[in-house]
Every structure is written in structure tokens, then in C-alpha cells.
Design a protein around this nucleic acid. Sequence first.
RNA 1: GCGGACGUGGCGAAAUUGGCAGACGCGCCAGACUUAGGAUCUGGUGCCGAAAGGCGUGUGGGUUCAAGUCCCUCCGUCCGCACCA
Length: 821
Amino acid sequence: MSGNARYNGKENFEEWQKTWALEDRYNFKTIEQKWQKIWADEKVYHVDIDRNKQKFYALVEFPYPSGQGLHVGHPRSYTALDVISRFKRMQGFNVLYPIGFDAFGLPAENYAIKTGIHPAISTAENIKNFTRQLKSLGFSFDWDRCIDTSSPEYYKWTQWMFLKLYEKGLAYKDKIAINWCPSCKVGLANEEVVNGHCERCGHEVVRKNKEQWMIAITKYADRLIDDLADLDFIERVKTQQINWIGRSEGAELDFDFEGEKLTVFTTRPDTAFGVTYMVLAPEHAFVQKYMARFENQDEVKAYVEAASKKSDLERTAGEEKTGVELKGVKAKNPYTGEFIPVFISDYVLTGYGTGAIMAVPAHDARDWAFAKVFNLPIVEVLEGGDVQKEAFEGDGLHVNSGFLNGLGKEEAMKKAIDYAIQNGFGRAKVNFKLRDWVFSRQRYWGEPIPMVYCEHCGWQPLSEKDLPLKLPDVKDFLPNDEGESPLSKAADWVNTTCPKCGAKARRETDVMPNWAGSSWYFLRYTDPKNDKEFASKEALDYWMNVDWYNGGMEHTTLHLLYSRFWHKFLYDCGLVPTKEPYNKRTSHGMILASNGEKMSKSRGNVINPDDIVENYGADTFRLYEMFIGPFDQAAFWSEESLMGVYRFASKVYGLFKKVYKTQDAPMTSDDLRAMHKAILEVTERIEQMKFNTAVSSLMTYVNYLSNMQKIPAEMYEALLKLLSPFTPHLAEEMWARLGHNDSVVTTLWPVGDKKLAEDNVVTIAVQINGKMRGTIECKKDEDDEEVKKVALSLENVARQTAQSGIKKIIVVKNRIVNIVA
RNA sequence: GCGGACGUGGCGAAAUUGGCAGACGCGCCAGACUUAGGAUCUGGUGCCGAAAGGCGUGUGGGUUCAAGUCCCUCCGUCCGCACCA
């Protein structure tokens, strides 16, 4: 006989019980290792579809398996949703809480360049290390569902979905000016550029004309905004996505320019009577087309040249507006028939709208600033401000506006558009800031794009049976400044035949961005081993949607936006059952070093989770991360506070000595109240993600228990249950020591009784003119008159009201008596 | 510049949504046990004051019997967007 793991190898509970006296100390290491093994052996957290239970799908952003290992920030998010998952499980839900690895990406590749170690090898090693670390923290992940986006079994389906996008016309090749990071030597999507700098390395981004695979995410712009309305996302996330997509409703209007239509986009067609000039972006096609007609060609050419050399950052940094008038040409305002001057200026962007604007200096701050520099007329067409002093962008009544006079903004807008439509020079139009997704990366460690270029047939997709298109082994991972992928040097792989005509052809050598694999990973978790489909309909129908998704704010306009789009696309193809992937989205604050700086290798202030687990245990670590402060706010790491939490865990361990069978330690009504109050508070606070105060409630309850001579088992069991989502190992151990043969993590969550949690005696504050003068004890819901009597009988009150007399007494039930004197 | 959030002890923070400000934890002080500790336990701890009492939630005002909470002013911090017409 081998002994029972739950009884630490002893044959039975009694045998094991004898050993406790020997280890009086809170030996977290033994406890944690023991229960992690039992959970794994018994597959306690493994889930399957169970139609008798309601499902709950909790999701955290899967880590990129970097060489540095787990950061203390990871466990903040992972513990929070582990708490939620364990809590839901104990409430009877069938909980899916999966984990995996977002394994493609630049660091592994850069590491390969430095060391020659193949990314597949270093990635596998890192995954092993991450897995060890995550397991040491006791998360209730279903490890059988672990995925790795860089495995061919996984990326086969990423490629398959790309082919779908291609098939539906949403993936297309285009030569455009993209954002290029000269340091990473890779093209970036708009979303990866932060204030003109590379999101990953911080290097300034330059423009580069390159042929790219693009994904038409803009086709979904409207739905990506509109469908947010029904989702339970924190407001910050919603507004950030809405701002990023940047929907503007307005009109396109055609002005006459040298006999041709010069089309502008405007959100304020109502102000068209106040147009005093027009501006083209320096890159606007008309600038080159009509160059010969400009009287000041040299000046124009010089400006265009200068603008082209400026980075986006420089273009926006300039304090004062610059520009050049296109002398010798005029445009005609279709509303007034007036001829107005036309300028070029880099404050008009080529990528937005039509690259040309009608300028209304009286009612647009930018136009106003430009008009001041060039001394252009400012004509008020809407009352409400002093347009000579500054642009007035508010609402008011129109003046100097012909048929719009006397109308407000909204009405004038409609009428102006109607007029343009009737007279054939305009139409209503919606514009977005969102650009199509630049999908090509000139690097190695990513999903190969399953496309082949044939001189006769053009770009041809691989057929499904040829998937996965495996990433070939190469020796030279170096990218180059020309933007050629390292794959282009793998001649054997690149040279292939056309899937259509069989002629010689070349493979696409760029790979997908690291956002590709993460755009649908939550779907794969529902059916991770499936080799026929990316996930079965049955699994998707049962598990989707994700009920609660927690992740970083930094992904709001990257992964979160991309994956919503990707999911919607699959929905349109009939491949997933829901139009949105995530019902609820929350976000955790960062964990910073104790001095408030970001933890980083270069600053040398990184806390290694392994050390914390080693020195204080996983339970203390988890509990501390929940106690550290409001979950959505940044928090500073503090070893001293961690110690406080460790003391708490030790105290919980130590209380066991005082636990008696409930019949030997009868519970008083105070005891009941303390217990039910703890149950109610912890329950409510977990649901609201107020983990820090949930832990406070537990501490208060433990303080209560500490003051008892004998602790009834029932009260200690309630503690263990409430504690188990936070400190599962400790809870399991003490649960077992109480003689239970089941797992506390699979028991039912306790239900609090509000009646029992209430005091029958309340302390009521007595105030005179709003100032505290004392307290009185009263029966709960005591009659107001009686309360007044008791309050007035206070010595303090009698003395202080003797002279002034009493004007009024306000009684707030069970709370306060305020005597107005 | 525009938009949003926030400002509470020495520190991290609570506050049933207008009703005893500072729960819980850290730190600090005192004591106990150890003839050692950064270990453990007990008590104390917003500020001024011996006490009575007074003052306290960034600033100044307002509403109210009552304001950390609601309204206005200013100051400060953080975040998002940043020529998007």
C-alpha cells in the first residue's frame, strides 16, 4: 500500500493526524507542493462540456513566453480571474479557465540573431519555464487545454483563417506608405505606432512605401463601434476603441477647381457659407496635376519637397501653421459661387478624408490659426462667439448663410447636405480614423502567409490541404533595411509552383504579425486538440462567449480590437455562433517597483515571482497581489505589506489548534453574526472585483476568530471556503486536517444570511448641529421617540443644549440623531 | 489644446452612495516573552491640547439638520486623443 496523498503519504487520517504536533509551523512549501501534485494527479481543474451545468468562461491574456520569465504583473491578472473562476466553480458553474502561450514574436527572433539558437528551441524552453512558474502559483487552469500559437497544429488554423479573409476579399495586397521601424526593421500597423514611435522598441517610426498584405478591418468600423453598446466593458476601454475608430459623420462636397471637381470632406457642411479658402495636402494629386498652372511653382515644389522629408511627428510638432498659396488658380464655392484662394499645407493630412479641406476660419480652430498667419478673411456664419478673437465651434443661429440663416447647427447641417444633393455637388459621408490593418511583417518568427506569386496568375492562395504551411528552418535570421524577410533567403522554400497553373512561382516571404495568433486563441481553447476544425461547432456553441476577460489597457486598440474584428469576420462566415467574443472586459493596474518606477531589467528593480514563492509561498503571494490595492489601479510593490499578508496566512494556519467540534464550542449570536457578515461581504466584494476589501473582510473575520477561546469547526470551515479562491493550498490543507476527504475547492460556496448578519443592537451617533457629541446603544429599528429620549438624556447633550434650547431633532433610523440647537 | 479619471493619516488604502472619516494592512510607540534578533504576543497610534475641547478628506466658496460624497472656482497628479477637417 502506498499511502494516501491527501494524508501526506500516511495510510489514513488518524496516522497523519499524529504528525501535526511535530510541524507546528506554517510550512507553506510542503503544503503547496503537496496540493499542486494532488490537483494535477486528480485533474481537479479539467473541464468538459457538461450540459447539466451552466458554463462560465473566464479568460486572461495568455503570456508571451519571454526569456525573462513571469513578471509579478502576470499574477495580478491571473490570480484575480483564478479567484473568480474558483468562486464560480464553488457556486456550481462549469468553469473553463484556460492558459496558453502567444509564442510567435520578435524577442525570440532577436535572441536567435544574437545567439544563433533557433527561436523554436528558445521558445520551447521559455514555455517550459513559464509553465513551471504558473503551476507553482496554483492557478486552476485546465492544463489539458494549453495551446502554443507557434505550433503548426495551431497556426494551421491561423493560416486557414487568413485564406478565408482572402477568399472574402478582406485580405489584399497593396503598395502604400507604411510605418517602418528602422530599429526592428519591420513594418508596423497604425495601432503599433504610439506618438510616432514603435510600440515595441520606442524607436521613431519612418514612412516607407512597401507592398503589404492588408486586412480590411475598416469594413467593420461601424459594427466595431455600434456593437460595443451591448457589452459590459469598462468605460475606458469603450471610449478608447470608439476614439481610435474615430467615426465622423458629415458630407463630401465638390468644389470647382480648374474645371475639375475638388472634393472635400467636412463634418460642418452648415458652415459652407463661411469658407474663405481651401487647403490641399502637399501630396494631393491635383498639386502635381496642375503644377504647370501655378505662378509660384518653385515655391510650391519646395514646400512639397520639404513636407515629404518631415516625419509625422515633425509635421504635427510645429507651433505655427505653414503653407503656400497656389497662385494663379482659384476654387469656386458651390454654395455662394464665390472664388476663393487654394493653399497647400501639411496640416491637411493625405490619409484622411479626401486630402483636401474647405477652410472655415470662423468656426474651426485650425483654419482660424492658418487664416491668422496668412491674413485671410474670417467670416462669421454662426452666432455665439467673437470669431475675430478665436474660432467659435459651438452651436448657435446661422447668419450670412443664405438659405441657412436663422437655423441651428443640426438643422442647417441637414439642409446644407440636402441642397448639395439636389444640386449634384455633394453627398452625406461617414469617415473613420481607423485604417486597414497592415498585416505583413518582414521577419522570421511568425506564421508564414499561405500565398504564392505566379507571373501568370498573380497572387494565388494555397489550398486548405496544403496547410499548415510550415515555417522552414533557416540559419540566417537577420532582417535587412530593404525590408526583405529572412525567409527570402530560404530558396528551397521560396521557390515553388503555382497552385493554379503549375508554373514556377514564389512564396510570400513576409510573415504575419504577432497579433494574428492571438486574434482567435479564445476559440481554440474550447476545443484545442481538434485536427479537423479550428474548434467544433458543439464546443463553440457550449463555451462561447467568454464571460469575463481581463487584460491590459495597452491592448485596447491592438489585440482587443483585432480579435473583435476577427471574431466578427468568422461570425459572418457562419463559423462562430456569436457576433462578439467577450461579454465582459476588465483591466488591471500595473505593478510598479516600490519607488513607483516601472520594473525593468535595465533598472534592476525586477521582483522575481520565483523568489516570492520560495520565501513566502504562493498563497501569500496571491493574497498579497489581491490585497495590494484597488484592482484597476497601479500599485507599488512592498515587501513589508507582503509580510503582513504572510502573518495573516500563518495566523489562519495557527487558528487550527483552537478548532473544536461545533457541538463542543457552541456558537453565540455574535459568532453567527461575524461569520455571516464575512460570508456576505466576501461574496459581494469578489463579484465586484473589490479584492482588496474582500481580503480586509477575511482579516477582520480572522481577528474575530483569534479572540475566541474555542473556535467552532463550522466557523473555521466557513473561513476556509471563503479563503480557498485566494489561498487554495492553505485552504485545502486545513480542510483536510478537519477530516474532510473531499476538496474544499469543489465544495459549495457558503450562503450568507442577511438576518443573522445583522446586529440587534445598533450604535447610533448623536450630533448637535452636525457635530459628534456621543453615541448611544439602541435596539435595532427602535422607535424614533425612544431614540430621541435616550439621546437627550446624554449628559453631554443636556449640558450643551441647556442654554440654546432645541429647535429640531432629526433621527435617521439606526444611524444618527442630529439635534439642531 | 481637447476629453476622462483622480486628489483622504507617516505609507497602501476603506467609507453601506448625503448620515460616527480613517475599516483592513504596513510603519511607528509602549509593554510582555526571550539575558540576541528585522521572530512572536498584548495595548496604543489623524493633528493640536494635561483635560474640557478644538481642527481635520488639495484650495476657496455654495446647497443641506448633516458634505470625503452634490454644485461652482482655482491648484495639482495621472491617463487617453493629439492638426482626423
